[in-house]
Nucleic acid binder design. Structure first.
Lengths: 331, 331
DNA sequence: TGTGGGTTCCAAAGCGCTTTGGCTTGCCTT
DNA sequence: AAGGCAAGCCAAAGCGCTTTGGAACCCACA
């Protein structure tokens, strides 16, 4: 035995100043020796801190979790592992996430929350802001009348760069195959593309835009309908690598070739299992590792939990433009 | 106020018999009216039950989370949503998951655990068995000297069926592009393939087997090296749809065609974003929805937590063989 | 009338921590 | 030598539930 009160042990272990170095050493030694770890349930009840970060997972028969999620998770895990943070996924009805958010906050099940794939004026963000729990948004929302903390990539600049490059190559009919337009990232991408074109006196008419969930099949359909249209594009910018699998298939099906008939640039979130350089014609991409974003967001959440970070800083990361063989000058 | 003791309220809410129906009704009514929900932290401390299921997530710079995981998660969420179950992901160093398993069990952070991608004589399974926490394995292990509960698909039969079909079509050089052979599912798949061949007096020599993590690139490399070998196969069975993207690319790069030069069958875990019928030549597949497995495993875990299920039942699900255009008779 | 057995409820003791408020020391002033 | 002040420690009161061990009551049966 240590012949010390529980108070002192608790303080020693939690780094409070009113315990002598000597005593603290004895306590931590003994704790290590006996493998003592404070019971988290008890600690939770006493402090209200859970030592976990939360994510509300939209589910439902018609809801598919984005395959990007797993990469994000890898990043989050990379950081969390070293910092005694667990992640709790709370499944929610995709049509009523609010109830779940309220529950996890009211129950203090998690110390902080992250939000992904925001849409304009995202209700989840207003809710979390009102509930007063620390949170970070992966991505951005628009049209909210308050500030919040986020980490995002510069989608607008990325797609602006991509479009500019195509324009420089002489393309004047550039199409955009985008993700679900209800999400902010898709809006920004369209905006960036459009700006590049209009800066050069060109347009991005509705006939050259497609928006849909980012599956191979949707990529195929979008590309096919674009290329079979009245004034087919000579270049396509595509929001995802998975979609561009379908785009490439459509181009081939139509007897066309990349880049001779169609130039192609895609956005690459960096999957370990599908890489743009391995496409039959290596793909020019705008690249930003979603895994790194996961790491960073975990780091920021941890900082917020421990009070090291506060305020409403938004981060916007630049995006690489990696040129490969899939683009060429306009015919 | 209800003028009832805390005891009675607790019992009423938790369905204990020693409270009159009348009282129970009053209590539940009042609870609903005031939106009262027992504080989970307090309940945890008192009962030791967490209301969560756990998963230890291997992480590390060199570790990539399998994209199948997200589909499994969808299924798990589908079930968990309706049953007040949250999922906690505990990131662990991929080289030392044991510490994390011990921690979550010792701390009673979760009521049950699931294990995925087991390998032969999987240490995690023995550990959980020893620690005595309810768990379900997604997949199977071999060489363990005790029984345990699992849900798995019949990988051996699936690949046996696939190989048999190819043999019936006259193929006698069938190659197998498998996943990482350290995992049980890969062993079973090889076994099933080999059995079909040897049943017909054919062999599956090492020269016709490739094993590697299931990426597009590895699929390409495997197919390429097989087809450029001394006695190239006329048919290939591939363990994943993602890999078969690479396989198809390799076949095309070599100026060959599916199915005229090479027949191809792949295993399909059912991704919403990549479907075998959408391959340039629609792919014959062995199909089993990993999302359904997630649902089922969540259900079994819940049943174990509430004591409805116990024992060591292993489930093995049959696998569909879906024939599409990618196979033909041997030249 | 007395007694045994249900039924329905309650007071109080945990669960294992953190935190408040206070009590000793030892040492430094004046 | 008395007073003051940190430094270091402790007892006990929570945190919000569940569960134990009774107690009170009502009814039936002898």
């Amino acid at each position: 035995m240590l012949a010390l009160s529980q108070t002192t042990v608790s303080r020693a272990l939690n780094g409070y100043p009113e315990v002598s170095d000597e005593t603290r050493r004895r306590v931590t030694d003994a704790a290590k020796r006996h493998g003592y770890r404070p019971n988290p349930s008890a600690r939770r009840l006493a402090t209200g801190k859970a030592g976990m970060i939360g994510y509300v997972l939209p589910t439902g028969a018609a809801v598919d979790i984005d395959p990007h999620f797993v990469e994000f998770l890898s990043g989050l895990g990379d950081y969390a592992r070293g910092h005694d943070l667990d992640l709790v996924l709370s499944p929610a009805d995709a049509n009523d996430e609010e109830t779940t958010y309220r529950r996890i906050v009211a129950n203090k099940q998690v110390d902080a929350v992250y939000v992904s794939s925001p849409c304009p004026a995202d209700r989840r963000i207003s809710l979390l802001n009102r509930l007063g729990i620390p949170f970070i948004v992966h991505g951005r929302s628009e049209g909210l009348d308050f500030e919040y903390a986020y980490t995002d990539i510069d989608n607008e600049a990325a797609f602006n760069d991509a479009a500019r490059l195509l324009i420089q190559l002489g393309h004047n009919r550039v199409a955009l195959i985008n993700g679900d337009i209800r999400q902010t990232f898709a809006l920004f991408r369209e905006r960036g593309t459009r700006r590049a074109l209009s800066d050069s006196g060109l347009a991005l008419p509705p006939a050259l835009i497609r928006c849909s969930p980012m599956t191979e099949e949707n990529g195929y359909r979008a590309a096919r309908s674009l290329l079979e249209g009245e004034t087919p594009p000579t270049a396509i910018i595509c929001s995802s690598l998975i979609m561009s699998l379908g785009v490439v298939r459509a181009i081939r099906d139509l007897g066309l070739a990349v880049p001779d008939d169609v130039s192609l640039i895609a956005h690459d979130d960096v999957f370990p299992w599908l890489r743009p350089e391995n496409f039959s014609v290596p793909l020019t991409t705008t690249r930003s590792s979603i895994r790194l974003a996961g790491q960073r967001i975990a780091e920021r959440l941890a900082a917020r939990i421990s009070g090291l970070e506060s305020g409403f800083e938004g981060e916007v990361w630049p995006v690489d433009l990696v040129v490969r063989a899939s683009i060429g000058s306009a015919a």
